[in-house]
Design a binder for these strands. Structure first.
Length: 279
DNA sequence: AACGATCCCTGTTGGC
DNA sequence: TGCCAACAGGGATCGT
């Protein structure tokens, strides 16, 4: 599932293809993919013929500057990926949008479950979209322990839900939230108000190394359907996961079988020994 | 206001 | 073997 490391890996691949390039042909094949625009056809009409500037990322959003004061926003959702192809190459199923550049490259947005989207916003639309209210980036702009302590104080939600909430820290999804809590030795069902400063520090200090490791290995590819790198390769972080998807397998630290519980409406994987619930 | 629950979508998986 | 319900999940939205 695309989370920050998968999105950042994707961004690094498409940046050299897009930055400075002119979009010569933009097609949205599936209207739902452009649903964040008032008119789905705005995506192709606004991008066609325009030059792309910087390709940035915030949380799980890829945000590109486009000439004409436009912002091109891409979210991979849960099954989306960007594919770098040459015109004429056979298209993968569920190629929901195509962006052809003057560099002779086609960027293809493939997204079977259509939770992802592409959008092109004017400055006013960008403000109205709420995308600028997304939280601090988990990799580039992580809040300090003091800031996290202040934000967590007296709050009710379980820590797993808090880490998934993109309004505070943006970029963690279900896989990396489980990995962070495993490294930090915190049970996912702990309420954030119950965490002491040392525990919040352990969580805070696990986030960047876990995400950096994910980026270094090209992200996590769970199966054939899921995320692939833009060149078609699979990410290799799967084999390095310590908790996610390892139910029944031994904890790499203590050997206790990893357990799975549904917490905050998401399957959560943890070591009952390293991540005990009681203090 | 805060927070939990529900929905969207479709390929894959597991049970019978 | 074949069928079908359950499952996966990010984020918007709804209800309490």
């Amino acid at each position: 599932m695309p989370e920050l490391p998968e999105v950042e890996t994707t961004r690094r691949f498409i940046e050299p293809v897009l930055t400075g390039a002119r979009l010569e042909r933009v097609e949205v094949r599936r209207p739902r993919t452009a649903r964040r625009n008032l008119r789905p056809e705005d995506v192709s009409e606004r991008l066609n013929g325009r030059r792309v500037g910087a390709v940035k990322r915030r949380g799980k959003f890829i945000i590109s500057d486009v000439e004409g004061d436009l912002t091109w926003v891409t979210h991979l959702g849960m099954s989306g990926r960007m594919q770098i192809a040459k015109p004429g190459e056979v298209e993968a199923p569920h190629t929901n949008a195509v962006f052809a550049t003057d560099g002779g490259v086609e960027l293809r947005f493939v997204d079977p479950r259509t939770f992802g989207f592409v959008a092109v916003f004017t400055p006013d639309e960008m403000s109205a979209s709420g995308l600028d209210r997304i939280g601090r980036d988990a990799l580039d702009d992580l809040p300090s322990v003091d800031e996290m302590s202040a934000a967590f104080a007296g709050r009710v939600p379980v820590v797993k839900a808090a880490l998934l909430d993109q309004r505070f820290i943006a970029g963690l999804g279900n896989i990396y939230a489980d990995e962070v809590l495993h490294v930090a030795r915190i049970h996912p069902a702990r309420t954030i108000g119950s965490l002491d400063r040392d525990e919040i520090g352990r969580i805070r200090n696990a986030i960047v190394p876990v995400l950096q490791s994910g980026v270094a290995h090209g992200g996590t590819s769970l199966n054939d359907l899921a995320y692939l790198l833009p060149d078609g390769r699979a990410g290799e972080f799967l084999e390095r996961l310590g908790a996610y998807g390892r139910e029944g397998e031994p904890c790499r630290t203590c050997g206790t079988p990893i357990e799975r519980l549904v917490i905050a409406q998401r399957s959560s994987h943890f070591c009952p020994t390293c991540q005990h619930l009681a203090d």
